[in-house]
């Protein structure tokens, strides 16, 4: 019998023991970052937030989605879950930003280097098929309980689609356009910024959209290790068998998901 579990435990313990300084640093940075984002959205009066989001939806995604956003957010407010929704939103937003900051460069790298691609691809497969709950354990070991490990698990879980779709988008740029760009004496950086990324943009934005959706679903699960927000409501509903409350929390998540999906789906499309 191979006791894989023991090895993993040893490995994680070794990491926590030897890199505690690193994890503390990351913890500190993320606490401040997420805390700041969260404080901002909780501080912002609800009507301003609703007006901003509805306006954005109206501008990018049309009149129907504008109304949907307006009504959806008003409904959440009316249910009395505004603060939790903003906490969840802030966590999704900051996790997504970090996931993109890591994922897009990884995607670009794997599109441009065979070797990188060969290493990154199986890791992505692993990350995507591993049940989401499993990420909670190392997250807790590295960062303790709270919002930061929640965000950490969320980032790991939500990153694969944007890596994949960025890489795919860049690989799909027609070879003759790449060749033409090189023939005019473009540097590798010019090729990337002037040609590959702009042409891969629709694909990258599809990745961003999927990453946001996955982050939202993970943020709820992350409430099990103390992440604040709508997940807490759902979790309370379950543990106290208060079906109505659980359902309300779930409904707020669904509404937030639909709104974010509609807005981000249309971000890349020019009007």
């Amino acid at each position: 019998m191979i006791d894989v579990g023991t090895y993993i435990e040893h490995f994680i313990n070794w990491l926590t023991a030897n890199f505690s300084g690193f994890f503390d640093g990351v913890n500190y940075g993320m606490t401040n970052f997420i805390g700041g984002v969260e404080a901002f959205w909780v501080w912002m009066p609800f009507y301003v937030t609703i007006a901003l989001m509805a306006g954005l939806a109206f501008w990018r995604a049309g009149i129907g989605n504008g109304f949907l956003t307006l009504l959806g957010l008003l409904f959440i407010y009316a249910m009395g879950y505004w603060d939790q929704t903003m906490q969840t939103f802030a966590l999704v937003l900051s996790s997504t930003v970090l996931a993109l900051a890591l994922g897009i460069p990884l995607g670009i790298w794997s599109a441009r280097s065979q070797t990188a691609n060969r290493i990154i691809r199986p890791i992505l497969d692993f990350m995507q098929t591993m049940p989401a709950f499993v990420y909670l354990i190392p997250a807790v070991l590295f960062f303790g309980l709270g919002t930061v490990p929640g965000a950490f698990a969320t980032i790991i879980f939500a990153m694969p689609p944007v890596v994949r779709l960025t890489s795919l988008g860049i690989q799909q740029v027609p070879e003759d356009i790449v060749e033409a760009t090189k023939a005019f004496g473009a540097t590798s950086r010019q090729l990337l910024l002037k040609v590959q990324v702009p042409l891969a943009m629709p694909s990258i934005l599809a990745g961003v959209n999927q990453t946001i959706m996955m982050a939202l679903s993970m943020v709820v699960i992350a409430s099990m290790i103390g992440a604040k927000g709508l997940g807490e409501i759902v979790l309370q509903g379950i543990s106290q068998l208060r079906i109505g409350m659980g359902f309300e929390g779930g409904l707020a998540v669904v509404l937030l998901a639909i709104i974010l999906d509609r807005i981000t789906q249309h971000l890349g499309k020019s009007k």
Binding site: P174, D176, I177, E179, A180, T181, K182, A183, F184, G185, A186, Q190, K194, V195, P198, L199
Partner: peptide, 30 residues
Amino acid sequence: RRKEFAMVFQHFGLLPHRTVLSNVAFGLEI
């Protein structure tokens, strides 16, 4: 490549998201 050569391709190899003007100016932009 910038000064000596220019290349014209069978399938054009133009940047579809840009205008005619900025495509023509592309080599100089580089």
